[in-house]
């Protein structure tokens, strides 16, 4: 039996380029589109806000259909959750998967949003996704095998059953090709968000200066101090590097093991 294609929603923000401060698509969201494509999902872009030109660029990366929620600015989390649960996005059925970038780029976006949306939806969230594939490619269950990016190049596998939220890490290798013809042909649909009133968080948030915090290093990444090789033979040095990368899980275990 052919697996039915997953129905994925990619959350898009009106990002800005961190270097130039110009409107630009967010790298992690571009990778989220690539992840949806890698999963063979039917994907729709969802943006809480009015259609802005930069959204067309996401279309260039392979998102043919983008929905903008007019009036969502007051409460984007509610607007997004409502749109995702409304059943109005896909004619074929409910949403299986929500993909988002893992952190803000400095525009009107927030790294907290995927968590807030997952909480509102009541769905599990897997953060920092580097790669994903369907656990049972032939079956109907939308269970996913996830590879999470950890510090220092380490990877951790996880399994999650849909519907779920994934936030995509910037190391994900699935950057789709940018096709100008697709960006040009993009359809930006606008739907009413059905939200009114002022943002619930307005005034409630406190702004603090950035402070470096002690790093929380995951157990997986706490590799031992390593070895110091003084003037080793090239073969020994290469072997030591490969062993170290295998210990971190960056390289697969040796063939036949």
């Amino acid at each position: 039996m052919m697996a039915t294609a997953l129905r994925a929603v990619v959350l898009l923000s009106a990002g800005i380029d961190p270097v130039s401060g110009r409107p630009a698509p967010v790298g992690t969201e571009i990778r989220a589109i690539g992840l949806a494509r890698a999963l063979g999902a039917r994907a729709i872009g969802l943006h809480a806000g009015l259609p802005v030109p930069v959204l067309r660029e996401y279309a260039g990366y392979g998102l043919a259909d983008i929905v903008c929620l007019d009036g969502a600015g007051a409460d984007p989390v509610t607007a997004l959750a409502r749109a995702i649960l409304s059943g109005g996005l896909f004619a074929e059925g409910p949403v299986d998967l929500v993909l988002a970038g893992r952190r803000a780029s400095g525009g009107a976006d927030s790294g907290l949003l995927p968590y807030a949306v997952a909480e509102r939806l009541g769905w599990p969230i897997v953060a920092d996704v580097a790669a994903a594939q369907r656990a049972t490619p032939a079956g109907p269950s939308p269970e996913l095998e996830i590879e999470q990016a950890r510090p220092r190049g380490a990877r951790r596998t996880a399994r999650v059953a849909g519907p779920c939220v994934l936030s995509v890490h910037e190391v994900a290798a699935c950057v789709p090709d940018f096709v100008f013809a697709q960006a040009r042909a993009a359809v930006l649909r606008t739907m009413p968000a059905g939200i009114d009133g002022s943002p619930p968080l307005a005034g409630g948030a406190e702004e603090r200066a950035y402070r470096r915090r002690p790093r929380l290093i995951a157990a997986a990444a706490q590799a031992s101090g390593g070895r110091v090789l003084v003037d080793p033979a090239p073969q020994d040095a290469a072997r030591a590097i490969i062993d170290h990368l295998r210990a971190l899980g960056v390289l697969p275990p040796p063939a036949g093991s």
Partner: peptide
């Protein structure tokens, strides 16, 4: 190749993306 198919080399794709986003 570039405009209709997005088929450029990875190095070139990165440079083009940066030109679009950062004008450099």
């Amino acid at each position: 190749q570039a405009l209709m198919l997005g088929q450029v080399r990875p190095g070139a794709a990165q440079a083009l993306r940066r030109m679009r986003d950062s004008a450099e």
